[in-house]
């Protein structure tokens, strides 16, 4: 999966939880889940659980705490996929 496909997949995952439509339309690697998309902490957990299901990976507490932006999520997903 290339970066473009990865971003598209993440976009599909976060869509139900975002509060800022404009930031969602402009979603890029730099987009921050909390500050830009205004996802609350409870829904951030849902994003992580959906990422686990979509990519069939397990996110631990340390990774979860870092997963605050599209870029960080992409790096963690790639690392976990490579470990499989």
């Amino acid at each position: 999966m290339n970066n473009e496909q990865l971003i598209e997949t993440l976009k599909k995952i976060v869509k139900p939880y975002i509060q800022d439509e404009a930031a969602f339309e402009d979603l890029s690697e730099e987009t921050d889940f909390v500050n830009d998309l205004k996802i609350n902490s409870a829904n951030l957990v849902d994003v992580i659980l959906d990422v686990e299901d979509e990519f069939d990976i397990e996110i631990d507490n340390d990774s979860m705490e870092q997963m605050l932006s599209v870029q960080a999520a992409m790096e963690i997903i790639k690392t976990k996929l490579n470990q499989k």
Binding site: S41, A42, V45, D46, I48, L49, N61, M64
Partner: peptide, 10 residues
């Protein structure tokens, strides 16, 4: 109440 999930404090 039945637990659906408990993860990352949620």
């Amino acid at each position: 109440s039945e637990k659906e999930y408990f993860r990352f404090n949620k």
